[in-house]
């Protein structure tokens, strides 16, 4: 059952997006997320959604894998939407039942909030979907390297990150093994009621802790035996190199960012007769 979790969200298709430099993907994802907050009107949302869909198509991801991450925040979206819809009281009233008042402004704010959250989460989810955890750790290390100047132990942080990532699948595997062994002795992990299950989990957690310590010990020995930290400068087997595709992706992202900013500050949001589209049927 853990087999699926162990690989994280990564969805391999070997597309142009997958092959982009992890650092570029990290920065562009951050830029996209930030730019979503600058989007003001529906035109901006359309552009942002178009870019997202374009990326999903180029990355050859199934749309379901992107929507899966949205499902996780569905509750927040629904509650936020209802609060916005009912609590915004200024602007033209379009419906009124006693204390419940729905205004045009409320409807607009609600729609925008929902769009913003969905674009935000699905945009951010593209990073882990198209980048392996190891690439991400390497990318972060490279991006953080200027911090070395102020004596942040970037290399050690990166090493810790890689080790942690490396051991997630191992620990999952180990947990499954120990759980199976205890289940085979009749531990009520998958058969008893909640309290018995929690009790039975102890028989899994104790061996798991012991084996984690053993592994940590062995790993420390192995690092030592290979003279880890004996030299100042470690080189990488896989050097990250920027390619043309990375430049293209950056230009697309910059163009997108420019459009969003122009829309917000210069054109004052491109007018789309959205009222007619939304309220046309209602009024």
């Amino acid at each position: 059952m853990f087999r699926d979790v162990a690989f994280g969200q990564y969805y391999p298709t070997d597309s142009a997006v997958h092959r982009l430099d992890a650092r570029v993907k990290l920065l562009l994802t951050i830029a996209y997320v930030v730019s979503i907050f600058f989007v003001k009107g529906y035109f901006g949302f359309m552009v942002a959604a178009a870019l997202l869909i374009l990326t999903v198509i180029v990355a050859r991801l199934p749309i379901a894998s992107v929507l899966k991450s949205v499902r996780g925040i569905l509750l927040i979206v629904v509650i936020g939407a209802l609060l916005n819809l009912f609590l915004i009281k200024d602007g033209d009233v379009i419906a009124e039942w006693g204390v419940i008042v729905i205004t045009k402004k409320g409807v607009h704010t609600t729609i925008k909030m929902v769009l913003r959250l969905i674009l935000l989460i699905s945009g951010a989810s593209l990073l882990p979907l198209t980048t392996t955890p190891v690439e991400l750790a390497d990318g972060l290390e490279s991006l953080m390297s200027p911090l070395k100047l102020i004596r942040v132990p970037v290399r050690d942080i990166a090493m810790i990150m890689s080790i942690a990532l490396r051991f997630i699948p191992t620990l999952f595997e180990e947990t499954t093994k120990i759980m199976n062994a205890q289940k085979a002795r009749g531990a009520a992990i998958d058969t008893g009621n909640v309290f018995r299950r929690i009790g039975a989990m102890l028989s899994v957690l104790i061996p798991l802790f012991i084996s984690s310590f053993r592994r940590a010990d062995e790993l420390a020995f192995a690092l030592d035996a290979r003279c880890y930290n004996a030299t100042d400068r470690r080189t990488k087997m896989k050097k990250m190199r920027l390619r043309w595709a990375d430049a293209v992706a950056t230009v697309v992202a910059l163009a997108f960012f420019t459009v969003i900013l122009l829309d917000k500050y210069y054109f004052g949001t491109v007018g789309i007769d959205i009222d007619a589209m939304i309220f046309g049927g209602l009024l």
């Binding site: 199976n180 062994a181 205890q182 104790i206 061996p207 012991i210």
Partner: peptide, 9 residues
């Protein structure tokens, strides 16, 4: 299981 001693608790 393999290495059953790892299940002792």
């Amino acid at each position: 299981f393999q290495y059953p001693e790892y299940q002792l608790f």
